[in-house]
């Protein structure tokens, strides 16, 4: 797998404050990489470092094949960034905003116009292209800012809280856009507080507070922290003897009753689950559903990130 963002001991200090403390990252081409951490953890500083907007205090980084500190203009041409606030020229039209930025990314006039049209259509803003941005809703402005970040077809797109403050419809458009980018083989570096969104979109997640605490796939993290759990819903509801039978099945580590279901943690669900079903059916229980129990990513986050405080 090709690496598009690689950092080694990347550090940024502001006086006595170490905002980014020796991070090592390998972000692959075509993946959505989540970057999760609390406010003030240094996420925005990391983004600025990786977009060659500020210089590191120490350490090295290579972004889209370009060395940070040596090829900064090339890095900025190869990446796109969605900043915390849209930062659009509000008195100007959507069209003028995008064409202006396309020009600054060195696109030829005909390409600039074609790209502006493509992204305005993609974001559902084409019909309002001639209106000043000041008349747009928060969601429309955010979509404009995303269009601006992607306009020059960057290899890596850094998105800082892309769906914050958006209504569900706008947020869905943005998430679909991120998935489409991944489909095109582009890399998305996603800073977010929205753990549900990170869970749905990200191939891997880095938990971060000034330094990288952990990088893994969301499912791997859940399995590591909570094991693999199965939820068996019985009708009308589980009986005490059902739980006793389940607990006696070989391979079951732990089982308990929860909201009308039996929740079972086992070492090898592939072997254990058929036995569980057979045992319950033989015992006269009526099974409505057997599903995998996924703990919310928030529980993992709180266990990894919070204890540092």
């Amino acid at each position: 797998m090709k690496t598009v963002v690689r950092t080694e001991k990347l550090t940024k200090r502001f006086g006595d404050l170490t905002a980014v403390d020796g991070i090592d990252l390998d972000v692959h081409e075509g993946e959505v990489f989540g970057f999760l951490g609390p406010n003030g953890a240094g996420k925005t500083t990391t983004l600025r470092l990786l977009c060659a907007l500020i210089a590191p205090t120490s350490g090295t980084a290579e972004i889209a094949g370009h060395r940070l500190g040596r090829d900064d203009a090339k890095i900025r041409a190869a990446v796109g960034i969605l900043t915390e606030l849209p930062g659009l020229y509000e008195r100007q039209s959507a069209w003028d905003n995008l064409v202006f930025y396309a020009t600054l990314y060195g696109l030829a006039p005909s390409v600039s116009r074609a790209q502006a049209e493509r992204y305005l259509r993609l974001m559902g803003l084409w019909e309002r292209r001639d209106e000043p941005v000041v008349t747009f809703s928060r969601g429309m402005k955010q979509k404009m800012a995303i269009a601006r970040a992607a306009l020059h077809e960057p290899r890596v797109l850094f998105l800082d809280e892309p769906t914050t403050g958006l209504d569900p419809d706008a947020a869905k458009t943005v998430r679909e856009f991120i998935v489409a980018l991944r489909g095109e083989g582009r890399t998305v570096f996603l800073c977010t507080h929205n753990l549900d969104e990170a869970d749905r979109l990200c191939d891997r997640i880095a938990f971060f507070r000034h330094r990288v605490l952990r990088i893994a796939n969301p499912d791997e993290l859940r399995a590591e922290f909570y094991g693999r759990a199965t939820e068996i819903r019985l009708v009308p509801k589980p009986r005490a003897e059902d739980l006793v039978r389940v607990q006696a099945v070989p391979g079951v580590r732990e089982a308990h009753l929860e909201n009308g279901s039996i929740v079972v943690a086992s070492t090898d669900p592939l072997h254990t689950n058929p036995l569980l079903v057979k045992t319950l059916v033989d015992g006269g229980a009526d099974i409505a559903f057997v599903t995998e129990r996924k703990p919310h990513l928030e529980e993992v986050y709180l266990r990894i990130v919070e204890p540092i405080e």
């Binding site: 977009c51 907007l53 203009a73 090339k74 900025r76 041409a77 990446v79 796109g80 960034i81 900043t83 606030l85 930062g87 659009l88 020229y89 509000e90 930025y101 600054l104 990314y105 060195g106 800012a145 601006r148 970040a149």
Partner: peptide, 14 residues
């Protein structure tokens, strides 16, 4: 005031 400098500086212009 309108926070437009960061996107501007994120472009490859000097």
């Amino acid at each position: 005031a309108s926070r437009t400098l960061e996107p501007l500086l994120a472009t490859p212009v000097g």
